[in-house]
Design a protein around this nucleic acid. Structure first.
Lengths: 284, 284
DNA sequence: ATACCTGGTCAATAATTTATGCTTCTTGCT
DNA sequence: AGCAAGAAGCATAAATTATTGACCAGGTAT
């Protein structure tokens, strides 16, 4: 992943000073060429060691390594910054055709990197386990309800019955009768809706397993989760950012779904049979 | 001029040691990333100062400057060496992690190519026109209902009211009272659901504008449409194919949405205001 | 409320890297 | 031979970078 994309993707969970560094670099990447770590620190009024720590935290070997990587990113115009991209000669007229998809791809990649490998498989396993031994509850509000609904629908194709609702009261009823072995999946972009947090906490008290899908910020909901899934998706334009977020969440779910499909032969057979039967019902 | 090209061009008038440095760099440019001037000198059995003097003679500010420039050159693949180019850029073994996304990207590209350029803009315009002068109807069944619902929700953020339902009877009622200037968007993966076809035909008789989103097969629904959007998405595994289809449809909608957002300043302002207000309502 | 972590920052300093001055050696020329 | 010019290395100064330990703020458990 490009250094700039990486910085951007982690920006949200940085401390104040770190974020200032990140912003400065993102906006003045070209300047970095002639900056030492000390100069950068001076420009921001912070200590040089903070700059070095920043680079190391991001996974670079040190400041020169970061600098080198950013040089590469700029050379490749892989800057993840629309304004910047406009300045350099684009091969064709800017039609913006594949533009949005490219942004989605970056978000997808960033997201893939911040979720520890194996997390998705763990979630898939948890869902499968709950499907056998307990209940699966799925919850999301507003736009977040859309995936919830779609995912519940998909699970039913696999013979996994999921209780889904966008009604907090109704969901609370389900949660209150939850037992160990049950699984609750909460979708919440910002992860700080009080009712959902309360719901999650209550569910944990019942000793159920909690999976959350939230943004990659520090938020109360994700800290509650047994398995928190994180999403990185950024754009200056709020409405685009929202699309990116949704595409990435959908992709996470798709990956889980595929894992479920392919993880278990019995379930796989069931799925194929179901799809065939549906086909027959709708076709003639 | 690229750093590597420069080195190559001056190689002939260099001293013996300098030429050894030049050759080493030209052949092992990638290694330079992790070499300090001292290490490079050791690798060649010469003194570190010779390396530094070499860089300065070439017009670089010093060793780090040369290194940075070479990083850029590599990133741009601007190495002026054909053999070199062959060695790099093996796309990497299939890891399985980004696999699904790659399939989606392929589907997205294929879809972009089969829809005549400008189609999406035309759809966006049609939606905007209908929003001003008539009604917008949105319809989908089963899984296709998911986008329909989501898209209607998004349109409302733009101040465009869309009537949405997954109930054919209810939709029929809306269609039967349709007038010229109205717009109907039908989502139907296979485009041959009899009820939807009938609905579409009826709507056309009322002289409304019809937009369809279907697979890129020949199907009765798309032939009815004023603006047919086509989707290409294939995989041997039926359940994956379905995911690809959904991701691509979602992407088409996202592009239309962005076009709507950015096509009209008034609407754009409204959107921003709406998002802000929503933020306020949910935050505190 | 108090004690105790934890994470974040900075100042001081150690370690590394880079740049430079100086010396020596070679080469070519007179 | 003697000299000038350039090339290379050595030693060292200068700079840059990395690490350590101290301090502080915010949160948590007692």
């Amino acid at each position: 992943m490009s250094a700039l994309v990486k910085i951007r993707s982690e920006r949200d969970q940085m401390s104040a000073v770190e974020r200032r560094i990140a912003d400065f670099i993102l906006e003045n990447a070209q300047l970095l060429r002639d900056y030492s770590s000390q100069q950068l620190a001076n420009a921001l009024g912070i200590s040089q060691s903070s700059v070095v720590k920043f680079t190391q935290k991001l996974g670079f070997k040190g400041y020169p390594d970061l600098k080198y990587s950013i040089g590469e990113a700029i050379a490749r115009s892989d800057n993840g910054d629309a304004a910047e991209q406009a300045t350099q000669a684009p091969p064709g007229p800017v039609d913006g055709a594949g533009q949005l998809w490219r942004r989605k791809s970056e978000a997808e990649e960033a997201t893939r990197l911040i979720n520890p490998p194996g997390t998705l498989a763990a979630v898939a396993d948890a869902i499968a386990a709950a499907g056998n031994a307990g209940k699966i509850l799925v919850m999301g509000l507003g736009e977040d309800d859309i995936y919830a609904r779609g995912f519940a629908l998909k699970l039913s194709l696999l013979g996994l019955v999921a209780v889904h609702s966008f009604d907090i009261a109704r969901m609370a009823a389900h949660v209150s009768s939850a037992a160990p072995g049950d699984l609750l999946l909460i979708f919440s972009e910002h992860g700080n809706h009080p009712a959902l947090v309360k719901l999650g906490r209550f569910f944990r008290e019942q000793r159920g397993r909690l999976v959350t899908i939230t943004r990659h910020t520090s938020n109360p909901l994700r800290t509650l989760a047994d398995l928190p899934l994180l999403v990185s998706a950024h754009d200056e334009r709020q409405y685009v950012q929202s699309l990116l977020y949704q595409a990435v969440v959908q992709h996470l779910l798709d990956q889980i779904f595929v894992a479920l499909c392919e993880g278990d032969d019995r379930r796989h057979a069931l799925l194929v049979a179901n799809l065939e039967r549906i086909q027959q019902m709708l076709e003639p």
